[in-house]
Amino acid sequence: MATVEERVKAITARKLGVDEIKMEDSFTADLGAESVDSIELVAMFEEEFGIEMDEDAALAVQTVGDAVKFIAEVCRQQGVEIES
């Protein structure tokens, strides 16, 4: 199983059409995500990991690294197994 970081980066790349993604990248400033993209990214992360995220908390996440941490924490809280 791929790690949370690998899976988050793969989905982000697919959704935003960006080849190289770094953990410190901001979804909006560096990767060009519009608010609509953010909504779809949240939906795609939920589907990918089989989790439910609070919209406000999820959409407050700024960087790819923060998204990895946030998703890992939600997985832990919701008992979803992940590769660290």
């Binding site: 608010s35 609509v36 909504i39 779809e40 949240v42 939906a43 609070d54 919209e55 406000d56 959409l59």
Partner: peptide, 16 residues
């Protein structure tokens, strides 16, 4: 529902 890009989504939620 937040209907965006041709699909129903949770969007930014009911708070917004």
């Amino acid at each position: 529902a937040w209907f965006i890009e041709g699909i129903a989504t949770k969007g930014f939620g009911k708070g917004r």
